[in-house]
Nucleic acid binder design. Structure first.
Lengths: 133, 133
DNA sequence: CGTTACCTTTACGTTAACGTAAGGTTATGC
DNA sequence: GCATAACCTTACGTTAACGTAAAGGTAACG
């Protein structure tokens, strides 16, 4: 059987792949964002753990707190298979989505602004250089 | 003369307009992100200060540190009117731009992912509700 | 059998970005 | 003329997200 995707990684292998420290991974576990399996004392990270870590790091880049991310992950788990849970979780997801689209829109504006600044600065620099000649 | 845009605001007026605390404004000043004028001891914030604060808060929403933002603001000042300064500043701006466009692209992916999750969750919820009937 | 590599836990230290409390100044209303 | 509001400075406290050091277990290698 081929099980490449279900292969499990040690903590140092994870650190290499994701460019994080062991301390960070243990910290995320402590905060209940990850829950790797154990072989004796040793942590073993599954494909699911890797997927979760991807989401964790992504969330961080978007300025979410670890607590925010923990809730998001709970949603990706659709952990509440009962109706009330699922409804609450869906609300939270829609909030996040609104937040992210707002962020995307603002980011577009910021990028445009910055591009204008860059163009102007580049022109000014070109002027300074031709004047020298 | 009409000078509505050059009117100056007190710290509490600033706090209202931008939904920040006085402590935050003083903190930003301490870190050299703002430098409002003074009338005696009292801070007076100009239109330029307001523009800078807008950029500060925007930067924060994008996960930049205050130190990052301080450098960005120095760029918006095009403070180095000498060639070397301007060139360095332009490099920094292009770095930021690259970072922001990367962030935008990743955000687009994340939004798409989340939308799929939401759709699936919504369907599941609908099922749960029709089953009840 | 020792040491090297990799893992573990516990626990105190650190940085950023403010919060909060204490104590003092200035303008305004009554 | 004094209290109230709005400002100020100084300084210690707090939270998040780890860093780092200490002390120890285990498996393989020579």
């Amino acid at each position: 059987m081929i099980h490449a995707l279900s292969e499990t990684l040690t903590i140092s292998q994870m650190c290499q792949q994701f460019s994080v420290t062991p301390r960070a991974l243990r910290f995320y576990e402590d905060k209940e964002l990850l829950a790797p399996a154990r072989k004796g004392m040793q942590r073993l990270y599954s494909a699911r753990d890797r997927a979760r870590l991807t989401l964790i790091l992504r969330g961080k880049r978007f300025g979410f707190s670890l607590e925010d991310i923990r809730q998001l992950l709970a949603m990706y788990d659709h952990s509440g298979s009962n109706e009330a849970q699922l409804a609450r979780t869906l609300d939270l997801a829609r909030d996040r989505l609104a937040h992210m689209t707002a962020q995307r829109d603002e980011l577009a504006v910021a990028i445009a602004d910055l591009q204008i600044e860059i163009t102007q600065a580049a022109e000014k620099l070109a002027q300074l250089r031709t004047q020298k000649v």
